[in-house]
């Protein structure tokens, strides 16, 4: 029987070839999807002091920290290819890049373990506890 609710096909066979990309979670909404001179403006001016990083974006001071993906997990950046003209068609998504750590940035506040994104990283381990098969 065909699965009429299938909506998105995700081809991750290209994961192996997908390039590693540095990813930054910014504390602001940037109304743009597309190219940006991240290396030239952002990476080049980022300062690394021990654990903590600092930089400014649009004249505002940011403080950042690198966090790793939870153990056993991989970061994927997915991109939709060939957006279907009709909503009856399946959508297709491919992996455009991969990452194993990311940097998240706070506006002025130094990063700490109570930051929501850090706490959210607890979820995969908890999900494992809730959902892994129960021993007999």
């Amino acid at each position: 029987m065909s699965c009429n609710s299938s909506v998105i096909r995700l081809c991750t066979s290209s994961v192996g070839q997908a390039p590693q990309a540095p990813v930054h979670l910014m504390p602001c909404e940037i109304e743009h999807n597309g190219p940006a001179q991240v290396n030239q403006y952002f990476t080049a001016t980022t300062k690394d002091q021990k654990q903590d990083k600092s930089v400014s974006f649009r004249g505002r001071g940011l403080k950042g920290q690198e966090i790793s993906c939870p153990q056993g997990y991989t970061g994927l950046v997915l991109k939709e290819i060939n957006k279907p003209g009709s909503d009856q068609e399946d959508r297709t998504v491919k992996v455009s890049s991969v990452f194993d750590k990311m940097t998240y940035w706070n506006l002025e506040t130094p990063p700490n373990s109570d930051d929501t994104i850090v706490m959210a990283m607890d979820w995969p381990d908890l999900a494992e506890a809730i959902h892994a098969p129960v021993d007999d």
Binding site: P27, C28, E29, I30, E31, H32, F57, R58, G59, R60, L107
Partner: peptide
Amino acid sequence: RFSWSTAQTLMDSKAVNVHWDD
């Protein structure tokens, strides 16, 4: 100096909008 209105005005008209929680 991003805080100068000259810079702000130019960015408002020619750069993408950026929104902060404050």
